[in-house]
Each structure stands twice: as structure tokens, then as C-alpha cells.
């Protein structure tokens, strides 16, 4: 449906993924959307038929049997099987989105401090500071360490990954990755006061070599 409307596009669209986490989440969406649509239509169909049909003469015993059959298959088996399927597929996918240790090496770390209403970005291995903008190498996992200087915010780049809250007193870590170079937009997802609607930022993904060059240049400028 959304393909008809605008081609799933839009710079904030979770259905137009550009990183592994967002891609997995969008597949989850399409899978669940398809399956649950079927379930929904089936329930509607049964309900409508049940209302229209002529039951004829049904005695107490027959209706008891009917009831047990409906409740057992529809009320117990259907949800249990569906939920088990969703969890078995979904939970490992969710685990893969967490900032777990890599098989080799360490992911690049970027520190982000959110405050009303901007994002302060710093690269702890160098002295680079940016505002409302992250520069990352494409194709590599990045761990963003989130801190708040005031209220609760939430860090979200829909095309790259899900969101994570930025909470005073805590450091939360979210892993993002962009498959291709490009500019990916993000914004604050937790209501944070008057300027919430304008608390945007950008993630600029560049090729690895270009990123190294950028790092050296910026450091020289500091």
C-alpha cells in the first residue's frame, strides 16, 4: 500500500531502511503485518458467518461441544502458536541489535550529550566536537554513548536503527550502522518540552577512507 503512496520513502521512514537493525525491524513489520492481516480477516469472516448463519435446533450438549472447540482452537491454540512464532523469530533479531562485543576489534565510539534542544557530539579518541551532526564510516558498527544534561530525550535515526532513551544520570549505548554512504536524519523521540519538535540531527555516513581523512583534518583544525 505504502509503495503506491510515496514508495516508502521519506528521510525518516522506518520502512526505507539503510542499516542492519532498521532492515531487520522493517522485515519484522512486513512479516507481522502479513500474518496478522490474515488472522484479522479470518476472525472477521468467522464472526460475520456466525451472525448470519441459521443455527437450526441445537441442544445443550452440542452447543457445549461447539463452545469448547471454538475456545480451545481459537482462544488457546491460535494465540499460543502465533505468539510463540513471533517470539522465536523476533527475540533473536532483537538480541542482534544490542551493542554486544564484536568478534574482533572494538566498534568506534561516539559520545552524544542531549540537552534542550540540541545534540552535542564528541569523539572520545580525538578532541572533535560537533553539534546536531554525527559523521560515521559507512559499513561499520558504531556505538553511540548517550547522556543527558537535563531532561529525558530519545536518540532515533529511523533509517539506521531503533531508538534509545537518553536519561539523566545514566549512560545508554545504542549501536547504529549505515550500509551505504549518505545523510540520514534523526530526531528526538521523547517529549522534552517546548523545542521538542525541532530537535533534529543528521548522521553523515562516508566511506572508510574518507572518514579517516576527515578525522585527521578535523583533529588538525582543533
Amino acid at each position: 500500500m505504502c509503495l503506491l503512496v510515496t514508495g516508502c520513502g521519506g528521510p525518516f521512514s522506518a520502512l526505507n531502511p539503510a542499516g542492519p537493525s532498521a532492515t531487520a525491524a522493517s522485515w519484522l513489520w512486513w512479516g507481522m503485518f502479513g500474518y496478522f492481516s490474515l488472522v484479522m480477516l479470518a476472525v472477521f469472516a468467522v464472526w460475520f458467518y456466525a451472525m448470519r448463519r441459521d443455527p437450526g435446533d441445537i441442544d445443550q450438549q452440542q452447543s457445549q461441544r461447539l463452545q469448547n472447540r471454538w475456545v480451545f482452537w481459537g482462544g488457546l491454540v491460535l494465540p499460543t502458536v502465533s505468539l510463540a512464532a513471533v517470539l522465536v523469530v523476533g527475540l533473536p533479531i532483537g538480541r542482534a541489535m544490542l551493542p554486544l562485543p564484536l568478534e574482533q576489534g572494538e566498534p568506534l565510539r561516539i559520545d552524544v550529550t542531549a540537552q534542550q534542544w540540541r545534540w552535542d557530539v564528541s569523539y572520545p579518541d580525538s578532541a572533535i566536537m560537533l553539534e546536531d551532526r554525527l559523521v560515521i564510516p559507512a559499513g561499520e558498527p558504531i556505538d553511540v554513548h548517550l547522556n543527558s544534561a537535563d531532561v529525558i530525550h530519545s536518540f532515533w535515526v529511523p533509517r539506521l536503527a531503533g531508538k534509545l532513551d537518553v536519561i539523566p544520570g545514566r549512560t545508554n549505548v545504542i549501536r547504529i550502522q549505515a550500509d551505504q554512504p549518505g545523510i540520514y536524519r534523526g530526531h528526538c523521540a521523547e517529549f522534552c518540552g517546548a523545542g521538542h519538535a525541532h530537535m533534529h540531527f543528521e548522521v553523515e555516513a562516508v566511506e572508510s577512507e574518507a572518514f579517516q581523512t576527515w578525522l585527521t583534518q578535523e583533529q588538525a583544525n582543533e
Partner: peptide
């Protein structure tokens, strides 16, 4: 489902 919620939470 948590990984899906991370995308659409607060939207």
C-alpha cells in the same frame, strides 16, 4: 515485540 517497538515507540 521489543525490536519492532524500538522503531515505532513514541511515534
Amino acid at each position: 515485540l521489543v525490536p519492532f517497538d524500538w522503531q515505532v515507540h513514541d511515534t
